[in-house]
């Protein structure tokens, strides 16, 4: 298992970005954050990430578009963050997976779920 894994969080919500840092940094992960799709894409261009958490609902550029671009550039694991209100029955999950997403999580998310996903993803590097 990679210990110093690099994780990118793309979310327009300050709280979510802070949460990821607060949760994951003590566990030894390097956490980077972008506050919209464009910024995120720039960061993916410049460096490698083991896992990217991508909010689907953002200003400027919507999640699926960002996912497509990222996936064209790098084979990174991208975890899509949905709001349970926008997809309560997880109907977009399969669509997201078609677009190359590793998996999906739903806000408000359980931290244990985040940790599980990271562990599983790192076990199966891309």
């Amino acid at each position: 298992m990679k210990t110093k894994a690099k994780i990118l969080v793309i979310d327009d919500e300050q709280g979510i970005r802070d949460l990821f840092k607060f949760l994951l940094e003590p566990l030894g992960y390097q956490v980077f954050a972008a506050c919209d799709g464009l910024e995120g894409i720039e960061m993916v261009k410049k460096s490698e990430f083991d896992i990217i958490f991508l909010d689907v609902h953002m200003p400027k550029m919507q999640g699926p578009e960002v996912l497509k671009i990222i996936k064209e550039m790098k084979p990174t694991h991208v975890v899509i963050i949905f709001s349970s209100s926008s997809d309560p029955n997880h109907l977009f999950e399969s669509k997201a997976k078609e677009l190359g997403a590793y998996t999906c999580i739903y806000k408000p998310m359980d931290v244990n779920e985040i940790l599980d996903i990271i562990n599983k993803a790192l076990e199966n590097p891309h």
Binding site: E13, G15, I16, F22, L23, S84, K107, P108, M109, I114
Partner: peptide, 12 residues
């Protein structure tokens, strides 16, 4: 959802 996610996440 967003604020709840933050609250829940930090608490956990």
């Amino acid at each position: 959802n967003n604020p709840m996610g933050v609250i829940l996440g930090f608490a956990q």
